[in-house]
Amino acid sequence: MDRVKIGTCWLDGCSGCHMSLLDIDEGIVAVLRKADIVFGPLVDAQEWPEGVDVAVIEGAVSSQADLALAQTARARSRIVVALGDCAVTGNVPSMRNGIPVRSLLERVYVEGASAQPGVPTDGVPALLKHAQPLHESIKVDVHVPGCPPKPNAILLVLSELLEGRTPDPGSKLRFG
């Protein structure tokens, strides 16, 4: 069987879901024996490559940069996994949704500065009005809730996908 190509990324999340993925500990060695990680925070890939088998996405879609990356990952990957409550529901990032973006930025960069007050605009992506769950931006094939999902649930999902099956993480999962 061909080696499976996995890409991972985080959008508006805390990286805790990626940490939970690393918390499969030695399991990562087993995964690396069967799969290549072709994109993600642990490897030096330049951009999301074509022909990815499994895209694992953490975090909500919160900025234009998040949206574009999610769309690229979707277009170039066979299966998209929404990893964690932020990707599945919006979770903590969406706590900002009741607040106008402008007042959020002004609180941090104008009121919250003792020198050079001003909202950054040069070379930084604009925020979307709302931080949204992944499935509102792109089609998601597998939802893995949890904040973060337990390592054994992540390992189960990855193992099933590596074997070419669609995982049913059911009993191993819960929100929060």
């Binding site: 508006d12 919160s62 900025s63 940069a65 990032p93 706590m95 900002r96 009741g98 607040i99 007042s103 959020l104 930025l105 609180r107 941090v108 919250g112 070379g123 930084v124 992506p125 925020l127």
Partner: peptide, 10 residues
């Protein structure tokens, strides 16, 4: 750095 979440505000 290109992301902001605004914990101080929300």
């Amino acid at each position: 750095v290109t992301q902001i979440r605004g914990f101080e505000k929300f």
